[in-house]
Amino acid sequence: MSDAKKFMYINRKAPYGTIYAWESLEVVLIGAAFEQDVSLAFMDDGVYQLTKGQDTSGIGMKNFSPTYSALGDYEVSKIYVEKESLEERGLTLDDLQHLVWEDEDEDYAEKDSIRLVSRAELADVLAGQDVLFNF
């Protein structure tokens, strides 16, 4: 892992209206096999991807929102959600799915994956990355 790159997937689009949210998940899941140091960020309309209670039965598309809760199994444990984007949209963390991962080093203790960060804090996180995938 020492030569692993820091991969950041930046998600800024709402789900279903366009394909980008779904495709981002696809790359994250396939990318997991490459054992890089992966983080996800959700900002702007991207925060809508994580909302609870999505039901696509009426629009004939696959509901991919349950996949977010599987990210922990793919060792994706760093999910940054931007505070300003949530607040602008009248949302709080309670409106989002509760995403967790299991920490092997602490007897598989369940830990929160979502880290609520300000735009300034997210800027620092982005600055520390090696590769940015834009969705």
Binding site: K5, F34, V131
Partner: peptide
């Protein structure tokens, strides 16, 4: 080919740039 080719591009290249 598959999406792994994009991920590999991110690993192997000095820069990844997206147009869209």
């Amino acid at each position: 080919s598959g999406l792994g080719q994009l991920v590999e591009g991110g690993i192997q290249s000095d820069r990844l740039i997206v147009f869209g």
